[in-house]
Simulated scan of single mutants.
Amino acid sequence: MQNIEHIHHIAIICSDYERSKKFYTELLGLKIIREVYRKERNSYKLDLSLNGDYVIELFSFPAPPPRISRPEATGLRHLAFAVSDMEECIKSLEEKGLNAEPIRIDEFTGKRFTFIADPDDLPIEFYEL
């Protein structure tokens, strides 16, 4: 086995680059590391960080095909962010116009979590530590 240390990043292809850029930066608060326009692909690549750690590559491509997200389709199920206070998280989301699902309880850990959806309906989870 390789010496895997941690997840380096998650890559997301969006259907509307400006809308997704605003969602991940203005609404979720991720910071832009770099933004590159790749002329040969007619594509943007936006590198985003969370607390100084590189976490997401956001890509745009002309007319990407839709991906089934729900009901539980094969493939990446969701992206999860750890939070320290679920009520504060939900309040912050609501202040930004984002509606979280009702809080659920992880049956194995007893921890609380909730979901929202990004502009392309990718489930985004907030999991209380």
Score class of each variant (00 low, 15 high):
residue 5 E to K: 09
residue 7 I to P: 00
residue 10 I to L: 14
residue 11 A to W: 00
residue 14 C to P: 09
residue 15 S to G: 13
residue 17 Y to E: 02
residue 19 R to P: 06
residue 20 S to W: 01
residue 21 K to F: 13
residue 21 K to L: 07
residue 22 K to C: 02
residue 25 T to M: 01
residue 26 E to A: 14
residue 26 E to I: 08
residue 27 L to Y: 09
residue 31 K to A: 07
residue 31 K to F: 00
residue 33 I to E: 04
residue 33 I to Y: 01
residue 34 R to N: 06
residue 35 E to Q: 11
residue 36 V to M: 06
residue 43 S to L: 04
residue 44 Y to Q: 04
residue 44 Y to H: 15
residue 45 K to A: 15
residue 45 K to T: 14
residue 46 L to F: 13
residue 46 L to A: 10
residue 47 D to Y: 14
residue 49 S to L: 04
residue 50 L to M: 10
residue 51 N to I: 03
residue 53 D to C: 03
residue 53 D to G: 03
residue 54 Y to D: 10
residue 55 V to Y: 00
residue 55 V to A: 00
residue 58 L to T: 00
residue 59 F to N: 04
residue 59 F to A: 03
residue 59 F to D: 03
residue 60 S to Q: 01
residue 62 P to L: 13
residue 62 P to Y: 11
residue 63 A to Q: 13
residue 63 A to R: 13
residue 64 P to C: 10
residue 64 P to D: 09
residue 69 S to Q: 11
residue 70 R to P: 05
residue 71 P to L: 07
residue 72 E to I: 14
residue 72 E to D: 15
residue 72 E to S: 15
residue 73 A to P: 06
residue 76 L to G: 15
residue 77 R to I: 13
residue 86 M to R: 02
residue 86 M to V: 08
residue 89 C to S: 12
residue 91 K to P: 03
residue 94 E to I: 04
residue 98 L to N: 10
residue 100 A to D: 00
residue 101 E to D: 09
residue 103 I to R: 10
residue 104 R to E: 15
residue 104 R to K: 15
residue 106 D to N: 14
residue 108 F to W: 02
residue 109 T to A: 10
residue 110 G to M: 11
residue 115 F to V: 01
residue 117 A to L: 10
residue 118 D to A: 03
residue 122 L to G: 09
residue 126 F to S: 04
